[in-house]
Design a protein around this nucleic acid. Structure first.
Lengths: 145, 145
DNA sequence: GTGGATGCAAACCATTTGCACGCCA
DNA sequence: TGGCGTGCAAATGGTTTGCATCCAC
């Protein structure tokens, strides 16, 4: 994503353009397929651009509030952030090795109307977190761990 | 659930029978439809049976490990516990008033095989958390908040 | 120049843990 | 009676916040 696009995206959302915000946004867009926690982001940002973990948290939260990022609290108690490309995706995480795979479709879509009818609720969001064993770990387990 | 069933259930799972564990298990079974957080459980247990919040946490975690309870970390950062009746259910929570409704079916079931084929993962578990507006809040919003 | 952005350290808060005491098997 | 369960207080750890300083506009 070009320098200009980044800056416009920030300005359009009422955020002042700073080195930190630009860097975090660029980084999240580059790794749009990988949900990341604050510490990972912090480790990827050069210290001279942003030297404080709390600032990374502040930036991630601002970008999330503006809808530029999506954030999800995983069952391990850690918040993961991801560039919001507008696509709606879910991931499955291997409970042994941590490998991540993306789902092609969201199982929810087909059930949206059904649930609306079933419960009378309007669905405004959902979290869908899968755990499982990836093919590699399955293989290793079979051959005696 | 009778006194005896409770005690057997604990013993069968290798847990010593204590007043605290019995009381928590009884309580969770009685309210099997309502996911509860540790503090709620603590408030429901008579002080003379269990006087410490940390003990409630310990009991809830033990019962969860043995599979007698299910535990889920919600997006608000709080762990909710629920009696594990073997049924598999999901809930939708109104983001305005907090009302909870149960889903009749689990959207996941239909997708289990599909995801296995899609990603090669064996699914060992999933968290499915919905947020939405209940009919009452929808109504209130329509008529000017 | 000035209000928002950042760095640092301290606060937060749900949950966990260490240790001394007490109770179930 | 011996080991596990409990109570209390202190620790933990990811995240947030207060405040002084700094930078974008």
């Amino acid at each position: 994503m070009t320098e200009n696009l980044l800056e416009n995206l920030l300005r359009k959302n009422g955020l002042k353009v700073t080195k930190g915000r630009k860097e975090v946004l660029r980084l999240m867009e580059k790794r749009k397929d990988e949900p990341m926690k604050a510490e990972q982001v912090y480790d990827l940002v050069p210290r001279e651009i942003c030297s404080s973990l709390s600032t990374v948290y502040r930036i991630l939260n601002q970008l999330s509030q503006k809808g530029l990022l999506k954030s999800t609290l995983y069952q391990n108690g850690i918040m993961y952030y991801q560039y919001n490309s507008g696509e709606h995706r879910h991931y499955i995480v291997c409970s042994k090795c941590g490998k991540v795979a993306a789902l092609e479709n969201c199982p929810m879509d087909a059930f949206d109307n059904y649930i609306r009818k079933d419960t009378g609720f309007d669905i405004t969001g959902h979290v869908f977190e899968l755990t499982g064993l990836c093919p590699d770990c399955k293989e290793k387990l079979k051959s005696g761990k």
